[in-house]
């Protein structure tokens, strides 16, 4: 049983370090551009920009209906 306890602990510890290194953009073990955290933010900003410039439905507000819930869930 102990080996699983250790495995779980290592997984959490390892992941905590991973998350911190992503947000600090400091991960020497992989190339600088393989940063999920900032890549996702960049991707969202890009897609949103294209949506604003070339909208399909023109009468839809940039800040959509039920936006707050959507964005809270996005951040979560």
């Amino acid at each position: 049983m102990n080996q699983y306890w250790d495995l779980i602990q290592q997984s959490y510890q390892g992941y905590w370090n991973y998350l911190i290194s992503e947000m600090a953009w400091n991960h020497p073990y992989k190339p600088w551009y393989e940063n999920y955290f900032y890549a996702l933010i960049l991707l969202s900003v890009l897609v949103w920009t294209v949506e604003i410039i070339f909208p399909w439905r023109r009468n839809q507000a940039i800040f959509r209906k039920r936006l707050l819930v959507g964005w809270i869930l996005y951040v979560l």
Partner: peptide
């Protein structure tokens, strides 16, 4: 993003799947 994308995807999953795969 933080929970769904990072915290769960890799934290809980990582621990769970490491155990499941080992078993």
């Amino acid at each position: 993003m933080f929970f769904n994308f990072f915290l769960f995807s890799l934290v809980a999953y990582n621990a769970l799947s490491n155990v499941a795969v080992d078993l």
